[in-house]
């Protein structure tokens, strides 16, 4: 889908979360320790802009659209 390696890793984690409210920002940070907070936020913004993911109960929880 034209993702960078970081974007793909963020997307894959979001997609794999079974929770109704989606994955939390804290969980993403804990699972992607080699990425900076800035990098994760940048990946999230790209995925939101492209309609791949969306925020759920607040701006810190995410699910994927497909």
């Amino acid at each position: 889908m034209g993702f960078t390696a970081s974007q793909r890793q963020v997307f894959t984690l979001i997609k794999s979360c079974p929770l109704a409210e989606g994955i939390s920002m804290q969980c993403l940070r804990n699972s992607l320790k080699y990425l900076s907070f800035y990098d994760i936020r940048t990946c999230l913004q790209f995925l939101i802009n492209e309609g791949h993911i969306y925020s759920t109960i607040d701006d810190c929880h995410f699910k994927c659209t497909n």
């Binding site: 109704a20 409210e21 969306y54 759920t56 109960i57 659209t65």
Partner: peptide, 29 residues
């Protein structure tokens, strides 16, 4: 975890908005 009806409504609303955005991006190529 169980979500309230309001939370479920908000999530579905955001999901529909994201789907529309995805369709828009695909249409743009």
């Amino acid at each position: 975890s169980s979500l309230t009806a309001e939370q479920q409504r908000k999530i579905e609303e955001n999901r529909q908005r994201a789907l529309a955005r995805r369709a828009e991006r695909l249409a743009q190529g």
